[in-house]
């Protein structure tokens, strides 16, 4: 039986997705994601660094549809979406949860690096 070979999309630091793609792929709403950007928990690649030091980043110069994110973000955002749905989380818990998810991811990467190097 012939099986067509499917091409994959990388989910890593070097490839990007738009906010609309994050909505489509993660299950979170555009409002949820916009909230995460506004509180600085989710950082678009194309938002000026100067915007990020403000307590509430200004997105005046960029429309929502123009925001670009590293595609590996999708991994944490999907987890967040599952947690939101399964634990019936409110929006204000999402930002905190995302910060912790990213911190755990980074710590696990460091731990993996230490384990492999010794």
């Amino acid at each position: 039986m012939h099986m067509e070979t499917s091409e994959v999309v990388w989910l890593d630091e070097h490839h990007e997705v738009s906010l609309l793609e994050l909505v489509e792929l993660s299950g979170l709403t555009a409002q949820d994601l916009q909230y995460l950007v506004e509180i600085g928990a989710l950082i678009p690649n194309n938002l000026a660094t100067s915007d990020l030091v403000q307590s509430k980043p200004s997105m005046d110069n960029l429309s929502i549809s123009e925001l670009r994110f590293s595609s590996h973000t999708l991994v944490s955002i999907r987890t967040l979406s599952r947690l939101k749905s399964d634990f019936e989380l409110e929006q204000n818990a999402l930002g905190l949860m995302l910060v912790f998810l990213e911190r755990i991811r980074n710590l696990e990467l460091q731990l993996h690096g230490l384990e492999g190097a010794t």
Binding site: S6, V8, L11, L25
Partner: peptide, 15 residues
């Protein structure tokens, strides 16, 4: 069938 490109790392996620 999925084509795994060269350059994937352990723990890599693909879509």
């Amino acid at each position: 069938k999925a084509r795994i490109p060269k350059g994937v790392i352990n723990g890599q996620k693909l879509l």
